[in-house]
């Protein structure tokens, strides 16, 4: 008898994150496909009200413990391990984000179960799950099937739309007990907020994003001029921020912001999943890259194989001419 499908809910600053709902939408699909229940795992401390949002699942298992208040991977993994051993789910979907990094791996190891990383999609095949995983910066895709149950999947953002995982239904909530070590070896001391006084990129309608292809800090000017002409702002991918060409508050992607502007123009950005997850829901995505095989072209609406250093100024001029 196959076990249920579990989706581990993720919280950030007291709210459930989009990926939780994306995972629920996916979990619903595959649970139905397997003919098994879908259960949502809510781990935390004094956050039971969040359970009401998890109606997409058939049931919510709510584990409350002070040790689960902060995002300490090994404590969350331990709680899940204990629960999984008791309840024997068949497939466990764990969001793969900065917040949860390590949880899925630890859980799989402790259950002696296969752990499938970098999952972007799941489907039911021959009564079991098949995962599609993105490797090598998004350039290669692997199709894998775990042998047997339980199996743990680390799910990347974007597998389904978050809306599809929201439901007006209320699922039954069962509070479950977990014991965790008294003294955690890893303790959160404080959060450090991003620098204030910066443009709020999440409110911009137009973003001109630059990546490694911009080649040097100097060339940022080209992006700034275009952004100014379009009435938007400049942002960047991780490499550009790592180099110090843009501040951290301008970083889009996994460790930065998620944005959904009306226009996202990606210049010299290859489109690795870590960046894409931060902008894939933009209304209009235009990508410029010298590499015709750059993964960004798979998620952009329009693409140009060109040197951003040439196209940006040409576009700026055309926009200015048009605006008069």
């Amino acid at each position: 008898m196959a076990g249920s499908v579990w989706v581990v809910a993720e919280q950030w600053q007291g709210r459930l994150t989009d990926i939780t709902f994306e995972a629920l939408a996916l979990g619903r699909e595959v649970a139905d496909g397997l003919g098994v229940p879908l259960e949502a795992l809510l781990l935390g401390f004094q956050c039971s009200s969040l359970a009401g949002e998890l109606g997409c699942a058939d049931k919510v298992l709510y584990a409350e413990h002070p040790g689960l208040k902060d995002p300490v991977p090994e404590l969350h993994a331990q709680a899940l391990t204990v629960l999984a051993r008791e309840r024997r789910p068949g497939n466990i979907i764990v969001p793969l984000t900065n917040t949860t990094m390590g949880v899925g791996t630890l859980l799989a190891k402790r259950l002696a179960a296969p752990g499938v990383n970098f999952t972007v999609d799941l489907r039911v095949s021959h009564g079991a799950l098949e995962a599609r995983c993105l490797l090598y910066g998004g350039k290669i895709q692997a199709l894998v099937r775990p042998q047997g149950e339980p199996a743990v999947f680390g799910l990347w953002p974007g597998a389904r739309s978050a809306d599809a995982g929201r439901s007006v239904r209320t699922a039954a909530v069962e509070q479950v007990a977990v014991t965790l070590p008294e003294d955690s070896r890893v303790q959160l001391k404080r959060y450090i907020e991003p620098e204030a006084g910066e443009v709020d990129l999440t409110r911009q309608e137009v973003l001109v994003a630059v990546g490694r292809g911009i080649q040097s800090k100097d060339n940022l000017e080209l992006a700034e001029e275009l952004a100014a002409a379009l009435g938007g702002a400049v942002c960047g991918s991780r490499p550009v921020v790592d180099q110090g060409w843009l501040p951290l508050a301008r970083q889009i992607g996994k460790s930065g912001l998620t944005v959904k502007p009306k226009l996202y123009l990606a210049a010299g950005i290859s489109g690795a999943p870590e960046h894409v997850e931060g902008m894939k829901d933009s209304a209009l995505i235009v990508a410029v890259n010298t590499d015709p095989h750059a993964p960004i072209f798979n998620i952009a609406h329009y693409g140009v194989v060109a040197d951003a250093l040439e196209l940006l100024p040409a576009l700026t001029e055309a926009v200015r001419a048009r605006k008069g």
Binding site: V144, P146, N298, Y302
Partner: peptide, 20 residues
């Protein structure tokens, strides 16, 4: 261990950009 690799392939450009 515990994982069957069915195949490796290049990702389908599901909805590839319209190139200009």
């Amino acid at each position: 261990a515990g994982i069957d690799l069915v195949e490796l392939c290049k990702p389908e450009a599901a909805g590839r950009a319209e190139m200009l």
